[in-house]
Lab assay of single mutants.
Amino acid sequence: MQIFVKGLTGKTTTLEVEPSDTIENVKAKIQDKTGLPPDQQRLIFAGKQLEDGRTLSDYNIQKESTLHIVWR
Rank of each mutant, 00 (worst) to 15 (best):
M1R: 02
M1P: 01
M1Q: 03
M1F: 15
M1H: 03
Q2M: 14
Q2I: 15
Q2C: 06
F4T: 05
F4D: 02
F4L: 06
F4V: 05
V5G: 02
V5W: 02
V5L: 10
K6R: 12
L8K: 10
T9N: 14
T9F: 12
T9A: 13
G10E: 06
G10H: 09
K11P: 15
T12K: 08
T12W: 10
T13R: 05
T13H: 14
T13P: 03
T13Y: 15
T13G: 04
T13K: 05
T14E: 09
T14H: 05
L15C: 02
L15I: 09
L15D: 00
V17Y: 03
V17A: 04
P19V: 07
P19H: 06
P19Q: 08
S20N: 13
S20Q: 09
D21F: 07
D21T: 10
D21L: 06
D21G: 02
T22E: 03
I23H: 01
I23A: 02
E24H: 09
N25Q: 11
N25D: 12
N25Y: 11
V26I: 13
V26Q: 00
K27N: 02
K27H: 02
A28E: 10
A28F: 14
A28Y: 12
K29G: 03
K29R: 07
I30N: 01
I30F: 08
Q31L: 10
D32P: 02
K33W: 11
K33S: 08
T34N: 04
G35W: 03
G35A: 04
L36M: 15
L36R: 06
P37Y: 07
P38Q: 12
P38S: 13
P38E: 07
D39K: 11
D39S: 13
Q40W: 11
Q40M: 12
Q40F: 11
Q41K: 06
Q41C: 08
Q41V: 15
Q41P: 03
R42W: 11
R42P: 02
L43M: 03
L43T: 01
L43A: 02
L43V: 05
L43K: 00
L43C: 01
I44R: 05
I44T: 10
I44W: 14
I44L: 13
F45I: 03
A46F: 09
A46M: 13
G47L: 04
G47F: 05
K48H: 12
K48S: 08
L50C: 03
L50Y: 00
E51W: 06
D52R: 03
D52Q: 04
D52W: 03
D52V: 05
G53H: 13
G53R: 10
T55L: 07
T55K: 13
L56K: 00
L56G: 00
L56F: 02
S57Y: 09
S57L: 11
D58A: 06
D58L: 02
D58E: 09
N60P: 03
N60R: 06
I61Q: 00
I61D: 00
K63V: 07
K63W: 06
E64A: 09
T66C: 05
T66I: 14
T66W: 09
L67K: 01
L67H: 01
L67R: 00
H68S: 10
H68E: 14
H68F: 12
H68D: 10
I69L: 15
I69V: 13
I69M: 12
V70C: 06
V70P: 02
V70W: 10
W71K: 09
W71F: 11
R72F: 14
